[in-house]
Write a protein that binds this DNA or RNA. Structure first.
Lengths: 341, 341
DNA sequence: GATTGGCACTCGTCCCGGGGGAGTGCTACC
DNA sequence: GGTAGCACTCCCCCGGGACGAGTGCCAATC
């Protein structure tokens, strides 16, 4: 019983199951794939694969279905990434190029992935933590309110309004703005607290409350992990074909997707993978609602190898892994290029 | 055959059908409602109601189900708005009060409505067109890029980056900023073009390109209707109970909801209604994907009677109309109060 | 030892037919 | 106009049987 053939069988099972949505039996396998052996032999292989936990049968007299573990082996060892065709690449590039501003880029990217993969697309806004600060703007609003605007090198703009205990002094605000920009411009947000700590010294004690408040707001903004934003598209794809792919209903999946926290945790975990494309299959997502889904993501916005955020696609376990992986990776690459330009 | 009783019967049918999800027959009706007549009489009334198109039967020997027209009559004439209880109001107010900034307010509002109505919630960002401008900020970014930030009285912030043909002159930028704020502050965006038109004259011909570019961007931003944004929550509610409420699947509904254009059209149509709460039932939505849904919205952010944007809830035809209407209206009122404060 | 053909067995799915029941429309009557 | 009775329609549920796909195992073969 050759090890190689057993893997071939697993691959064939995954491919057929993905294509047909139905448990695949030994006969069908030999008919659709040139395996060169008889169904009986395949049955033995299948028994071994089941023993090892790569496949399972829904009920006694049915064909086999890949398990999470089976899909995992498939993506790790059995799949050859099929690169996108030239026209496809060109279309992706052209579509993204047309974007006007950051919001537009993100919006187009998420729609594009939904379209390409026919699944739910996810795009994370460029992370504040890993971006560099381009400019800080202070705008007095009335006499007691100050609007603090942070602009990052990825084009992201964050603003906070600040209510002050005392009336504003325009001159001091001007000085503060100037100094802030000297200390802050070009720095990563994660390096800022150190730079800002010294700032208060430069002003007199009378202005201390203002300076501290502003510095506080800036730090708070960048510390606020919850400010990470994720955008979705293509949720309707979940319901395709009467939601056959999800045992219960798609309700739990939608719930999970609405929980930004869940997605953000997954995205940050996947950022650790150091692979160009990260994959989470079924229970690997560690989330109840996503047990019957797989999540494929890729980082974008590289700068010295560290990506700024991620894009991805979520679909049923039985999805086109190679296709989704290449689509996600392609979009991530174009995004990187566009944000750099 | 009294007209009044016929309407009572219709109301009873709607209420029962909403409660049970099942076609309601004449016997069940007399048992659950004190109508004071026999089933046979009800049958006659039902025949008349069916004749007029208010109810229909799914198949020959089944009970009756309200039609779109039936629901419409129900909400127009048969429903008494049940106000929210005091604790409910208090909870709504408290929850919304905690919000930090506009994004936060919108986010909380949309979650709140989803929670209260157990349906899909929709919140429209305060419209640019109908807001007043509070402040314009010009931020030089590098030597050839200018960031234009518009801040409205509803707290909304819009920014655009501008690429210039010539290097920036800080002094001119400062003058332009000052003049812009004089001309613009406190005005409705829709009144701005007039005010801005004269602006160019105040500067020398050398600065004309800059001034024109900035004015152009401001006008473009406010003209861009597509910048209207809508936020959703609670889409998972659509799948409740195995999506029994939607004949096909919920796919088309999700698709429609993702089309911001569709929602924006509906929202703007409903703004014309001049009622505190607007309702669109089934085909009244004029959209394929929403044939089996109803949409209830209410304006918020009143200022002299004209609302700035809308909040709403979308659910199946057989939804709790009075409850949804009062929940939506309550949230709209609190939003208005908070944005004014 | 791996492979193969044969065969009995399991079990889910489909289809069919009949009983039960809810609800209706009609008609005759008050 | 309202009511009671009645015949009729038609959906839903349920049990049983035929069918068929697929398996596991065993003995035979290369």
């Amino acid at each position: 019983m050759s090890e190689d053939r057993r893997l071939d069988v697993l691959r064939a099972i995954v491919e057929d199951y993905v294509a047909t949505r139905e448990p695949v039996g030994s006969r069908a396998l030999v008919e659709r794939h040139a395996l060169g052996v008889s169904p009986a032999t395949i049955r033995n292989d299948m028994a071994a694969l089941e023993e090892s936990g790569y496949i399972a049968q829904p009920h006694t007299s049915a064909g086999r279905v890949p398990t999470d573990k089976g899909y995992r082996l498939f993506v790790d060892r059995l799949t050859t990434v099929k690169p996108m065709s030239v026209p496809e690449r060109r279309a992706i590039g052209a579509f993204l190029e047309e974007a006007q501003d950051l919001d537009d880029v993100v919006d187009r990217a998420v729609r594009l992935i939904a379209q390409l993969t026919q699944q739910v697309a996810v795009v994370q806004y460029p992370s504040l933590r890993r971006s560099a600060l381009r400019h800080v703007e202070l705008v007095p609003v009335g006499v007691r309110h100050l609007l603090v605007v942070l602009i990052t090198d990825t084009g992201r703009v964050e603003q906070r309004t600040l209510e002050l205990g005392a009336d504003l002094d325009e001159v001091v605000v001007g000085q503060l703005r100037a100094r802030l920009n000297v200390s802050a411009a070009g720095r990563r947000l994660s390096e800022l607290p150190v730079a800002l700590a010294e700032l208060a010294d430069a002003f007199g004690p009378a202005d201390a409350p203002l300076v501290e408040a502003v510095v506080g707001v800036v730090e708070e903004t960048l510390a606020q992990e919850s400010e990470e934003r994720v955008v979705l598209a293509g949720t309707a794809h979940l319901a395709r074909g009467g939601a056959v792919d999800f045992a219960g209903s798609i309700g739990p999946v939608l719930e999970a997707l609405e929980e930004q926290v869940v997605l953000l945790r997954l995205l940050s975990e996947m950022a650790e993978d150091n692979a160009s494309v990260a994959v989470r299959i079924g229970r690997e997502t560690q989330h109840e609602g996503l047990l019957e889904t797989s999540f494929i993501t890729s980082g974008y916005g590289d700068e010295n190898g560290t990506s700024v955020a991620r894009v991805g696609s979520i679909g049923p376990l039985r999805m086109d892994y190679p296709g989704t992986m290449s689509a996600v990776r392609a979009v991530a690459r174009y995004l990187t290029r566009i944000l750099a330009g």
